[in-house]
Design a protein around this nucleic acid. Structure first.
Lengths: 206, 206
DNA sequence: TTAATTATTGACCGTTCGTTCTAAATATAT
DNA sequence: ATATATTTAGAACGAACGGTCAATAATTAA
C-alpha cells in the first residue's frame, strides 16, 4: 500500500494524459461494485477505465489504493443519504429516509445492483482481509451513529421505553442490509418497494 | 464439470483410502463456509480435508462438483430449520422458528459465522457465475415456499388483509438475510438476540 | 505367486493474477 | 534546437490458480 500521487497535478511539462482521472475513477467504481475487489482484475479495470496498466499504477497507486479512492467516491456520490437520514427529526423519519434512499439507489438503472459495502463485508477470501477490514470500519462507524441516534430518539419519546434502543438500531441496520441483499440478488423495484412498505408499517412509534 | 464418482463404493479390491470421505466433506464445507468459493483454493482444501490433490479429484470430481456436495451437506445439516419453519401453524410461528433457527446456527461456536448462501449470492466475481446461479436457485426455491406459506397464512387470518402477503414474505426473508449479514460481520450473540426480539415484537398478527 | 485394481504422491501443465520496467511518444522550459 | 519531464504501450516478472498425470504403494482376486 502506497501513498497515492495527486490526481490533479496541473502539470505544464511532460506528455499530457489521454484520459480523465475522474471518469476513470467512476469507471473503476462501477467495476468494483459489479465484480467485487477480488473479481475486479487489473485487466478488467484498465479496459473499463480506458487507460493502460502503467498509467493506472502511476496515477492511482496499487489496486488497494485505487479501491480506497473508489470507496471515497462511492460514499460521497451514492450513500450520502445514510448520513442524511440521521438528521431526520424522528426515529421513524430516520428509518423512512434510510429505506427510501436505498430504494432510490437500487432502482436507479445507472447503478449496478446491490451494495459495495455488503459484498466486501461478508467476503472472507484470503488476501482480502485488508479490504474487509477497511470496509468494516466504515460500516461500524455508521452502525455507531445509528445506535446513538436511536438512543437520542428514545429520550425524545419517539418509541416506547420498553424497546431497547440499541437493538432497534441494529434491527434497522439489519433490515436495511437485508433490503440491499434482496436488491443485489435480483428483486424487482416493485418487490423492494413492497418490502419497505412492510418495514415502515411495522415500525414502532413515531 | 464432471459427474462425481460414488462416495461410498464398498470396494474390496485396490489400495484402501487413507481418509474418510464424510469427514473430508465436512472439512471442505467449513473451508467454503469461511472463505467462499473463490477464496477456497485447492491448496487450502486439500490441507483441511487431509488428502492430496489427486485423491480430491478422484473422489469428488472438480472444485465445482465438490461445492455441490458441500451445499447438499450444508442444507441437510445446517439449514434444515428453514424448511421446518414452514410447518409452523401460524405466520408468526414461521417467523419465530426461522429467527430462532438462525440464532442457534450463528451462536453455535462450532460453526463459522455468516451464511454460505448469502456470501455466494452477492458475489459477482468472474468465473463464479455458475456457483452464483446454483446458490441462487436454492435461494429462490426457498423464497417461493415462503411466499406460498404467507399467502396461506393470510387465508387463515394470521394477519390483516390490508397487508400484502408476498411483501410480508419478502420482508421476512430480508430480515432473516440481514440477521445473517449481522452475524457474518461480527455481531455478538446478545446483539443478534436483540435484533430478533425487535423483529418478533413488530411482527404483525398471530 | 501373480495379475488386476485402486489410492497416494508430487511434479507438472497452461492460465491468470498483481506488479514492475523499459523504450518510445509527446509535451514544456530554456 | 535541446534538455527535461511526464505519459503511453506492452513485454515481462514471480506467484498462485485449477487441474492432470505418471510412478509408486497397497490391497484383493485368481
Amino acid at each position: 500500500m502506497t501513498l497515492h500521487p495527486e490526481l490533479e497535478r496541473a502539470n505544464s511539462r511532460g506528455r499530457p494524459r489521454q484520459f480523465d482521472p475522474d471518469e476513470a475513477l467512476t469507471a473503476a467504481m462501477r467495476v468494483f461494485w459489479e465484480h467485487g475487489y477480488a473479481g475486479a482484475s487489473i485487466s478488467i479495470l484498465v479496459k473499463a477505465m480506458g487507460l493502460n496498466r502503467g498509467s493506472l499504477y502511476a496515477t492511482f497507486g496499487d489496486k488497494e489504493a485505487l479501491f480506497h479512492r473508489v470507496m471515497e467516491l462511492y460514499e460521497r456520490e451514492k450513500t450520502a443519504y445514510m448520513m442524511d437520514a440521521l438528521d431526520q427529526p424522528t426515529a421513524r423519519g430516520v428509518a423512512e429516509r434510510l429505506f427510501r434512499g436505498t430504494l432510490a439507489l437500487q432502482t436507479n438503472s445507472d447503478n449496478p445492483k446491490g451494495s459495495m459495502g455488503i459484498v466486501h463485508s461478508v467476503s472472507h477470501a484470503p488476501g482480502d482481509e485488508a479490504i474487509r477490514t477497511f470496509v468494516m470500519e466504515r460500516s461500524n462507524f455508521w452502525r455507531e451513529k445509528l445506535i446513538d441516534r436511536m438512543i437520542e430518539a428514545q429520550r425524545q419519546g419517539d418509541f416506547p421505553s420498553t424497546i431497547d434502543a440499541k437493538s432497534l438500531a441494529l434491527s434497522l441496520k439489519a433490515s436495511s442490509d437485508g433490503l440491499l441483499v434482496a436488491a443485489g440478488t435480483g428483486a424487482s423495484a416493485a418487490e423492494l418497494s413492497g418490502i419497505v412498505s412492510i418495514f415502515l408499517a411495522t415500525w414502532p412509534g413515531k
